[in-house]
Design a binder for these strands. Structure first.
Lengths: 236, 236
DNA sequence: CGGGTTCTTGACTAGTTTCAAGCAAAGTGG
DNA sequence: CCACTTTGCTTGAAACTAGTCAAGAACCCG
């Protein structure tokens, strides 16, 4: 299986539009030096928990996960989704404890680097450290975008933006087959991502379906008319 | 003046609870190698703009700034505030262009590193690169918190949380004098940070004043009763 | 002492949540 | 294989939070 042969860093540079430093040689050396562990996680498992110490820096090799924060009374904000090439747990590795939880949406394959070896990576493999920073910057950008949506956009704009984002991110990872994406989310996930109630999310999705911008039945998500969705995202 | 003597990295580790690697020696070497430029920016200036290329990685030495994103129709989301020791422009240095703008709230002193030398920093000064990553992780955490607030908390909870956060962050940088903080914000800034209208922000602040949790007249911000504010932040 | 910005307040409106109920699809066990 | 249960989706009505409009007061700066 492909999965058994890739290591932590193999997937990192995939999404970089332009590698500032070729790290091919370094990646080889890295693979020899670090015996990175592989983890398999069942769908539905919360494998990183708010308040626990963060022991590993993970790269997603396969599957979907989501990061979230919970309040005492049960309200939950989904902070973002992790797809292949995304990194998980950086914040937990650098601070004493994790400030968010992570749950697997599908069965998940991860590659993990122990936090104790993170410094080795920085001191011995600068171009990988650079890649890692690039991933952190991508995460920052995504959060900025999401905050803009939740803070300023109407329910319709917000929902359309999120669907556009998820589809585009899935495209980057070649997850679209015959125009269709296996989207492992429920409307409740969307609602908790958008900061809206489930009911209102449902009604907003209905409007998007009626505009014939997307079709979403079961897990099969299809982007019928990207421009239409873009218009909904922009105008409200 | 103090300002003339510090370099890019002098301020970075200040907020790190526990330095994983002492970088004192490296910092010295860095200061000799890099002639980091200093910038002085007048209050009110937007010195980084959404869509422009990001030429520098900055560290704030003195003053306040805020990052924001704008929509075409003028709506604005403030993404966060930068105080001394905060870093600005990482995302712009790594990607082709900036995805947010930054405006100075007060007169600002920055220390800038050209994007072209960022790789030098990674290859030659790993412990500084590590510090930089720590700062990025702190930024990620702050954004997570803010997204939780805007997505899930009520107006009152949200506002109280933000005031707590700003005060705590100012405390870290020793900006509190006799219990008072010079807070260079208007209610419009708060509103754009919280994703609320100006009017509603005003009415929410009134409730916080009435609970005798804070006093805020002009620029002088005083935290009268932290526990009371915490209760407002938790219960709504 | 103006003139502009910021703050404050009330009345009205709109968007969103909550509540409640029914339906559809998928999974489970006898 | 079919009742039974669970989970997720859909819809309408009522309640409420927050937004908009409008106008006046307070504050600050030149």
């Amino acid at each position: 299986m492909l999965v058994e042969k890739v290591s932590l860093c193999d997937l990192w540079p995939r999404s970089r539009e332009k590698a500032l430093n070729s790290s091919a040689e370094e990646r080889l050396r890295f693979a020899e030096t670090f015996k990175t562990e592989q983890f398999h996680i069942a769908a539905g498992t919360t494998f990183m928990q708010q308040g626990m110490p963060g022991e590993h820096l993970y790269t997603v090799l396969k599957g979907w996960a989501f990061r979230y924060k919970s309040l005492d009374d049960g309200r939950r904000q989904i902070l973002g989704y992790a797809l292949p090439s995304d990194m998980l747990g950086l914040q937990g590795c650098l601070m004493q404890e994790l400030h968010h939880s992570v749950e697997a949406l599908t069965d998940l394959t991860l590659c993990g680097l122990s936090r104790h070896r993170l410094w080795e990576l920085y001191s011995g493999f600068p171009s990988l450290a650079f890649d890692l920073t690039w991933l952190a910057a991508r995460e920052l950008k995504t959060l900025d975008d999401q905050l803009l949506s939740v803070g300023q956009r109407s329910a319709l704009e917000r929902t359309a933006c999120l669907l556009l984002h998820l589809f585009a991110r899935a495209e980057e990872e070649d997850l679209i087959e015959q125009g269709k994406l296996q989207l492992p989310l429920t409307q409740q996930h969307l609602a908790d991502t958008l900061g809206m109630s489930l009911v209102h999310t449902n009604k907003t999705l209905k409007r998007i379906y009626e505009a014939k911008a997307v079709r979403w039945r079961g897990r099969s998500f299809e982007l019928l008319d990207r421009d239409a969705l873009r218009r909904l995202a922009a105008d409200g």
